[in-house]
């Protein structure tokens, strides 16, 4: 179970698109070492919320603190350098490069904050590929991989950054049941080294992985608790059924 050192804290976080309040004053704390799931009905603002955390979307109001530092106004790439890695909802790789080259770029992205002995790029690349079980496909062209393997490559790139926080946006979408079971093992493995924040629709994945669950609805934080608490929460049930 997680220690209680906060890794990421948002306070009053807002994002408005014209009149639409996609994220409307969220106070959220993520603790080091936990696996946290964010759930909520469609249009609840989940993807916008994590886009604010990763810096892909500008904040309209409120603050984000990461590892004790205010990162609210930092551009996305600087947040990545500080250890926030984001894997895309839609597979987002370099389709014409080989699998190994894809990961190699990610390893290089980490070189910015790497201190001490120089990084062994090839070894680090192999390590990340090994972690997701793609070593045998290292020289394949990424765009020609099966969809499930592309998702794994996406995660390997996240891992290669050696993040403090790994944000997974709907990672199991489009995966087969067997692939999902492998994925569960993989995430548990990752969580020994990094805090994991995941947006997920698949309740089986959420219930079996998450230490705690945060529920978003209409841009606001509706409830937060252990999987058991959330399952029994009346407001959550209403939000889902009412949506």
């Amino acid at each position: 179970m997680a220690s209680l050192t906060p890794l990421l804290v948002t306070s009053g976080l807002k994002r408005h698109f014209g009149g639409l309040k996609a994220v409307d004053g969220v106070d959220f704390t993520l603790y080091e070492g936990e696996i946290r799931a964010i759930i909520g009905p469609n249009g609840a603002g989940k993807t916008t919320f994590v886009s604010l955390l990763s810096g892909r979307t500008d904040v309209s109001g409120g603050t984000i603190t990461f590892a004790g530092e205010d990162v609210t106004r930092l551009p996305a790439y600087k947040r990545v350098q500080r250890g926030i890695a984001y894997t895309f909802q839609i597979t987002n790789i370099y389709p014409t490069k080989t699998v190994a080259e894809n990961v190699r770029v990610a390893v290089q992205g980490r070189a910015h904050r790497h201190r001490g002995a120089p990084l062994d790029f090839e070894a680090e690349t192999a390590l990340a590929l090994d972690a997701v079980g793609l070593s045998s496909r290292a020289d394949a062209i990424a765009g020609e991989l099966a969809y499930g393997h592309q998702r794994l490559l996406e995660i390997a790139m996240g891992l290669a950054l050696e993040p403090k926080l790994l944000i997974l946006d709907e990672p199991t979408q489009g995966l087969s049941d067997a692939e999902i079971e492998d994925f569960l093992v993989l995430v548990r493995h990752i969580s020994s080294r990094a805090t994991v924040l995941l947006i997920e629709h698949n309740m089986h994945v959420v219930m079996s992985l998450a230490d705690r669950i945060s529920v978003l609805s209409r841009g606001q934080l509706l409830a937060e608790g252990t999987p058991a608490e959330i399952r029994d929460n009346a407001a959550v049930q209403e939000a889902y059924l009412g949506a």
Partner: peptide, 18 residues
């Protein structure tokens, strides 16, 4: 390598810390 990564996929490259 970073240059061609930007060419092939700008958004991804930014999210790898470049």
């Amino acid at each position: 390598r970073v240059a061609t990564a930007i060419r092939d996929n700008e958004g991804r490259t930014e999210m790898l810390g470049f």
